[in-house]
Structures are given as structure tokens and as C-alpha cells.
Amino acid sequence: MVGPFAWFKWEALFRDWTVFAEGLKTTIMVAVLSLALALILGIVFGVLGTSQWKLAKLVSRIYVEFIQNTPLVIQVYFLYHGLPHMDVMIPVFAVGVLGVGVYHGAYIAEVVRAGIDSIHKGQMEAALSQGFSFWGAMRHVILPQASRIVLPPLTNQAVNLIKNTSVLAMVAGGDLMYRADSWSSDNLYYGPAYVAIGLLYLLLCLPLATLTRRLEGKTGVSS
């Protein structure tokens, strides 16, 4: 009887380490780029969500609710299977960046909106009364203050984002999850494959999660 974690299966895994290294590289690249996209979307829609301008508020609301209340897998399937029917072909790497970025952008928008809302409205009024534009006041007065409050939940979002890049496995995205899937479906060495990539995800996420906790402690003391 051969166990799921038999030694020769591990040996096969170490022999084929480049497969997993490629996957790790793709996962990191998708994570970094989609995080950048999510931050941009999150700040823009988060700020719009706090504006007095009703249309902007509505657009922000629709984006957040629509994205937060539909599964990430369906959103990615739409990009991968749906768009080609409308003659829009995007490479699978871009599907990953776009899908995960837009998804977490909606969550970050809520984090940013809550952070801005927590700043006393007198701050915006003081800045406006000095002649700042709305965006100038945001940039120089409101966001620097909000960022201290927003940082812990933001790093938490980064952790979720890294884990959610594994959705790429469902559209043959070449990421860590996909490599483990395809490598082990060839040789049926599922045990070592999933344990190994699980540890790699842990290695990526744990430092960020630790940072989150440390930041939470910090803002708790200083404010």
C-alpha cells in the first residue's frame, strides 16, 4: 500500500521544481499587478463614494455591490469565456490581473470609503476654505490621515488577493494552483503537490498578515 505522501512522490516533486517555480512567479506577478490595479480602483471609487456628487456616488455603489455580490469565479469566467464571444480576446495572464484586480478593487473601495468617512468633515471644510480643490484636499489633507486608519484592513485585502489569484487555475492561468493541478493530474501525486503549494501561499501571506496585526496595534496606541 503506497501512502499519499510516499517519499518517491516528494522526490518527483523536487525533480520537477521548475514547474512550481514558474507557477510561483506567475502568481507573484499577477498578485503584484492586480494589487496595483485594485489600489487604483479602490482609491478612485472609494473617494467617489464619499463625494457629494450623486451620480459618482451611484456609480461607485453599483461597482461595489455588483462585484462584491457575485462570485469571483463567475467574473473571471466572464472575462475568459464571455468576452471572446464579443470579439474581445485577452490573454489569460491579463484575465487574472483584471479579474482579481477589479474584484479586490471593490473591497478596497469600501475600506477607503470607510477610512475617509472616519475623518472629521471639518478637515475637508478647512481645506476647501483655504482654496483647495476637492481632489487637492483629498490628496493633501484627507487621504494622508485616512491612510493610517486604512492600512491594516488594506494589508488584509492584500492577503486575500494573493490567495484569490488561485482562481486562475480554473482558466488554465499558469499560476501556482494551476501548476499543482496539472502536474499532479499527470502522475496522481496530489499529496505533495498541494501541501507544497499550500506552504508557498503561506510563505507569501504570513508576513503580510503579521504586518497587519502589527499595524493594528500601532494605530490602536497612537490614536
Binding site: 478637515q123 476654505s129 483655504q130 482654496g131 489633507v141 490621515q145
Partner: peptide, 30 residues
């Protein structure tokens, strides 16, 4: 608004800036 300054009941100083930076922020940027 640049020529109409307002002083508020709740002061509304910028808490993330030093006292001097509170005074120089708008003149420098605007």
C-alpha cells in the same frame, strides 16, 4: 476662497502636520 479665510469653532487644524506646516501647506501648494 483664497482671499476669504475662515476660522472654525472646532479649529480644524490638520492633525498630521506640524503647527508650522499647517501654516505653510496652502500658501505653498495653492
Amino acid at each position: 476662497r483664497q482671499s476669504v479665510a475662515m476660522v472654525f469653532q472646532q479649529f480644524n487644524l490638520y492633525p498630521h502636520k506640524t503647527v508650522l506646516e499647517n501654516l505653510t501647506l496652502a500658501p505653498m501648494l495653492i
